[in-house]
Design a protein around this nucleic acid. Structure first.
Lengths: 184, 184
DNA sequence: GTCCACATGTAACTGGTTACATGATTGG
DNA sequence: CCAATCATGTAACCAGTTACATGTGGAC
């Protein structure tokens, strides 16, 4: 149950229409909570019927007409409640690690190229985050809101750093492996 | 479409019954691909009708009776195909980071305690991984299969290290924050 | 013989994904 | 007027989660 709260957060930061939200879920918020436009419209509908948000000026039948939403007090309260409530980290799932383990049994053919590709992707993401940091968080004292947002960005940077380092290490391991190893 | 391949990998490592698989998905494989027994039984059924696995000795009606499976050649081929095929990393989702961002808008009340709790959980997991490493991967030359498995474990260790460091940093940031900040 | 742990399953639901449909506005 | 783009949606599906059901065998 996180998507509605992601949307409430985004709408509190700035009232938006469905498409504007979709765009913001492709950048900033999407860096740690992605969503497609279909999900967003469905959830906007639910949030509205629950009385957590409200369509802004709203006239005319809607198809094709932009419709902006703002958060109502009930929505803000729900978000505050959800934020404060403890939550367990959800079990980790990663296909790349799974494939690596599988490759120990059925052979490493093909996977090295994909490790290289993933490395490039993570390096690109890391660079993007670092540019955002340079642009939005200059050194020196900052107000609490900025410090919290910076903290979140730091997590992204450190995570991508971890992946680039681990993938680099993995590729050096592969360089030292015999040519292929199908355990048959 | 990863669960069936996780199961094929587990079964190739060692033919097992549903419950044995469930137990292994609570440790080793479950560290990067978790699954409940319901998922596993459902998937075992599918894999069997697809001809990827086969029930072993199998006599008698089944309820309550242990039933072991082994992988058929078609299953091994499918796993090899899947392992070699490129796959994009799936978009990242993390509720803790989301809550942190929300807390910049609705106030940080309550979240610091949960950061502390998460820190303890990640430290415990890190310790567990390190003990496995000490037990199963002594220093010195190792065969390729072991090196691949060690690589996967390394990812787990480095990931948990990242989280403990980031959470520690986050908590020092919180220590320097004004008492609460409900932006209202 | 009853209770409990072992073992295998069914059913209903939820959230995310993929494919497609439809209206409005604008540039050529 | 036609195509492209902006904008909002519907529908079907799939994987993961939660709750519950049922049979077996051994301990007491």
């Amino acid at each position: 149950m996180s998507l509605p709260h992601a949307i409430l957060t985004a709408l509190l930061e700035k009232p938006s229409s469905g498409l504007e939200l979709t765009r913001r879920f492709d950048r900033s918020i999407g860096y740690f909570w992605s969503a497609t436009h279909q999900q967003i419209y469905r959830e906007l509908g639910r949030l509205e019927t629950e009385g957590h948000i409200r369509a802004l000026p709203a006239e005319q039948p809607t198809r094709g007409q932009k419709k902006s939403y703002e958060v109502l007090p009930a929505g803000r309260e729900e978000l505050a409640r959800w934020t404060a409530a403890p939550q367990d980290p959800k079990p980790y799932r990663d296909t790349l690690l799974l494939r690596l383990r599988a490759s120990a049994v059925v052979g490493t053919e093909g996977i090295e190229a994909d490790l290289r590709r993933h490395l490039a992707l993570h390096q690109r993401q890391l660079t993007e985050y670092q540019e955002i940091e340079k642009r939005d968080f200059p050194p020196g004292p900052a107000d609490p809101q900025d410090r919290l947002q910076h903290l979140v960005l730091r997590a992204g940077i450190d995570l991508e750093t971890f992946w680039t380092q681990w993938l680099t290490h993995a590729l050096t391991e592969f360089a030292g492996l015999p040519d292929d190893r199908p355990t048959e």
